[in-house]
């Protein structure tokens, strides 16, 4: 027990020890901010992988580590879409995942927001056109927030989600 406490004391607080992210490249639309209004204090996310290479998943997992610690912003990850406020979708939507994606959207109670995470989810990236890929996420379900990158860094994901949940939009679409 002493050893564990000593280790924790020695380690200290690591939260926030990461390089700052650059400004978000994709502006957040006022409609999306309006839609995310109920989730300003607490946001529960269900992550859906529709064919990503898992790098985006690793960065989503990294958000939960003690360096980024998303729980301090009231963001949680739920095990079921029925408990979720937001769906985070990664990867180009494959032929085999198209139906499960629509099902999961239906199973998520409203109001809900959909976040497309990573280049593949937004444009299909390198997999565009393949026989096994049906198209980006917004071909199947409406998308509210797009976070580009291959994969986006955890700090960038955090920035974008925080921008979505702010009181006033800092930037508007032209």
């Amino acid at each position: 027990m002493f050893r564990i406490i000593k280790k924790s004391l020695k380690t200290g607080i690591v939260t926030g020890r990461h390089p700052a992210a650059g400004p978000t490249t994709q502006p957040v639309s006022p409609e999306a901010i309006e839609k995310a209004k109920p989730f300003r204090k607490s946001l529960t996310i269900r992550e859906v992988d529709t064919g990503s290479c898992n790098a985006c998943e690793m960065e989503m997992n990294a958000l939960a580590n003690s360096v980024y610690d998303v729980e301090r912003f009231g963001i949680h990850v739920a095990a079921s879409p029925r408990h979720a406020d937001a769906l985070v979708v990664t990867g180009p939507v494959t032929v085999n995942m198209a139906r499960p994606l629509r099902d999961v959207y239906k199973a998520t109670p409203g109001p809900k927001v959909v976040i497309a995470l990573g280049d593949c989810a937004i444009t299909c990236g390198m997999f565009a056109g393949s026989y096994a890929v049906t198209g980006p996420v917004d071909r199947h379900i409406p998308v509210d927030l797009r976070i580009p990158g291959c994969p986006p860094r955890p700090a960038e994901i955090l920035n974008a989600i925080n921008e979505l949940r702010q009181d006033k939009p800092t930037r508007c679409e032209p």
Binding site: D49, T50, G51, S52, G91, P92, T94, V95, N96, M97, P100, M126, F127, S130, Y131, A132, V133
Partner: peptide, 11 residues
Amino acid sequence: HFWKHRGVEKL
């Protein structure tokens, strides 16, 4: 499995 088959070999 193979939910995420993206056709990488063909690409």
